[in-house]
Design a protein around this nucleic acid. Structure first.
Lengths: 108, 108
DNA sequence: ATTCTATATCGTTATATTGCAATAAGACAA
DNA sequence: TTGTCTTATTGCAATATAACGATATAGAAT
């Protein structure tokens, strides 16, 4: 079907999946890495930094924005995108218990 | 096209995206959470714990296995799945710098 | 050998995603 | 207003994903 049965899972599970999914594409990883290290966060710079067409980058930015991982603010003629600290904090908090438990698997 | 241009991104970016993508579905989040807290890691128990058909769960397990996040070992008549500590460690190591930098965004 | 049990794979349908060219929309400049 | 620059949206084609019933496979038990 291609249609995820979100109703059968908890809000937390859906939230974590949504964040992970947003990061689940190399272009979006590249955008996040760019934004986390670059002072220049103007949309046009992101497009230039990626090996994809402007329309494609715009779409990836939209998905990251929908997931809440980044936010955009109008900066004169262009738009400045940057990471959303709160969302990343939440992402980290949801992953941490899994990271910890994965260090010493329960069985096998 | 539906075909990701992986060639244009670094191995690291593709690797991180691949791990994130594997976790990018609530059913797979549920499986991981189950495996990280349950002593019983037999495949059948996972199927019972999820609100999805056996074939569907098997497919999700396959994807998690392909990404390397879990590994399966034959346990008598059935199969025991468990988290792969090394892969989770790598996942954590790749995310950590982003988590850190996201605490204090460069701009905006 | 046959049956049972557990898991994987196949085939199919519906929907989602990726990518881009073309175009629209918005802000600013002249 | 007209043009220019920047970003978003639309429309399309190709591929991927999610879900499941049906079936195959493989080991255990009888």
């Amino acid at each position: 079907m291609g249609l995820t049965k979100t109703d059968n899972f908890t809000t937390e599970q859906n939230e974590l999946a949504s964040l992970a999914k947003a990061l689940g594409h190399p272009a979006r990883v590249a955008i996040i890495e760019y934004l986390s290290s670059q002072a220049d966060c103007v949309c046009g710079s992101i497009v230039d930094a990626l090996p994809l067409a402007q329309a494609t980058v715009s779409q990836h930015l939209k998905e990251l924005k929908n997931a809440g991982l980044i936010q955009g603010s109008i900066e004169g003629n262009s738009i400045c995108y940057c990471l959303n600290p709160e969302k990343w904090k939440k992402f980290k908090q949801m992953l941490e218990p899994i990271f910890t438990k994965s260090e010493a698997p329960v069985c096998c």
